[in-house]
Amino acid sequence: MPDTYSLISPAPTTNMQPGSPLILGIMASGSGSNFEAVAIAIENGDLHAKVAVLIHNKPDIQAIDRAQKRGIPTVFLDHLNYATRAELDRAIVATFQTYQVECVVMAGWMRVITQVLIDAFPDRLINIHPSLLPSFPGIHAIEQALAAKVKITGCTVHLVSLEVDAGPILVQAAVPVLPNDTSETLHARVQIQEHLILPQAIELLAQKINTDRISL
């Protein structure tokens, strides 16, 4: 287990008791397939957590339907209504605090975040990225891998830092790049692994956070 887990500190927004499920806030901008993978892991008993709320910044995305069919509240925060990224992040933090969120998961959130959000959830803000970081950070990671003609790529769950896709790595999974791969076929195989490692990373955080609760 990497040393990054020692960085995790008690969340300032809640007083959850030892053994309670980890309260998650999810951020999504698209289909929400990674969000649904987390929800399914919870339903199957593989992840000791509860999704309290889904925040989305685009209307009419599939992630909303995935949440609503599970009775999970959704909150629309249109980034176009905020003058700065920091203002949007303050609204995100306020929403998560209302729902007593302990850990935030960026599951396909297509906006650069600021120190406002990072400071509100120190070492409890995680992101999933479709490459083996530190290779191919930023947008179009699948296309970057294909252009570089690598034989192996994959996906990474990491703690979020101010620098894009540069925070401490929690879990990774490797995916071979096949000779006839397109961005669509490779993305589909990478996404399968994303759906596996994201709940695993959250469960590791949940175990550490529960230990912190007991020690308080």
Rank of each mutant, 00 (worst) to 15 (best):
E163P: 01
G154H: 11
V104H: 09
P130G: 04
I169Q: 04
L159Y: 01
A174V: 12
A147E: 13
P134G: 12
L162C: 01
A141C: 04
P137E: 00
D165T: 10
V177D: 12
E102F: 14
Q115M: 07
S131N: 10
P122S: 05
Q100P: 01
A166G: 09
R111V: 13
I118Q: 09
Q144E: 01
V150C: 12
P179H: 14
L132H: 03
P168D: 14
Y99P: 08
H140P: 01
P122Q: 03
I118P: 04
M106V: 04
A141V: 03
P168Y: 05
H129Y: 00
L146W: 05
A120H: 03
A145P: 05
S131D: 11
I139K: 07
S135D: 14
A107M: 14
W109H: 07
L117D: 06
W109N: 02
V150P: 04
T156H: 00
V177M: 11
V150F: 06
T156M: 01
I128Q: 14
E102R: 14
L125T: 05
W109T: 03
I118M: 11
V164N: 06
A148E: 09
V157F: 00
V160S: 03
D119Q: 06
V150Q: 05
V112M: 15
L117W: 07
S161C: 03
H158T: 09
I152F: 05
V157C: 01
A107P: 11
E143V: 12
L117T: 13
A141Y: 09
K151E: 15
I128R: 13
M110I: 13
T153E: 08
V150N: 06
I139C: 03
I126P: 05
P137L: 06
T98V: 12
L162H: 09
H158F: 03
F136Q: 00
